[in-house]
């Protein structure tokens, strides 16, 4: 089964962790994840500037490690990211901002990638809210 997963919430929201555990369970079950698309506040789940309290799980880091380990296609919506100040080196240079807080394995791209993933996958599963 091919899954596309869309995440709409930041790393501190329980739904971000729920999406991660779902994605891990999907791969453990022998399924494929064609793309992860982080949209709206979901862009904060990919930012590397997040500092989690020591007694809490660092979900943004867990996402990063999960995507790297399984070489998944992790796409962050570029419009949602720019308006929230989540920038990779290229965008920080383009808009003359001093901070870069998005790097590999994440790629900035457009909403078309979500549409494309929904077409390619058997199921689109969205996570967001609390």
């Amino acid at each position: 089964m091919k899954f596309a997963i869309a995440l709409f919430s930041a790393a501190h929201a329980p739904s971000s962790r729920r999406a991660l555990l779902f994605a891990q369970a999907a791969l453990a079950g022998g399924h494929e994840i064609v793309r992860l698309f982080f949209y709206q506040d979901g862009v904060y789940s990919a930012a590397n500037s997040i500092v989690a309290p020591q007694d809490e799980q660092d979900i943004a880091r867990q996402w990063r490690e999960f995507v790297s380990q399984h070489q998944l296609d992790g796409v962050v919506c570029i419009a949602a990211a720019l308006r929230r100040g989540v920038l990779n080196a290229e965008e920080a240079t383009r808009y003359q901002r001093s901070a870069v807080n998005l790097e590999a394995p994440w790629a900035l791209s457009g909403l078309g990638q979500l549409h494309d993933a929904a077409q390619a996958a058997d199921r689109l599963i969205c996570f967001g809210g609390p």
């Binding site: 899954f3 555990l21 779902f22 891990q24 999907a26 079950g29 399924h31 058997d122 199921r123 599963i125």
Partner: peptide
Amino acid sequence: DYSGFVQLSI
């Protein structure tokens, strides 16, 4: 559990 969640989605 989460594997059950995956199965439900199928």
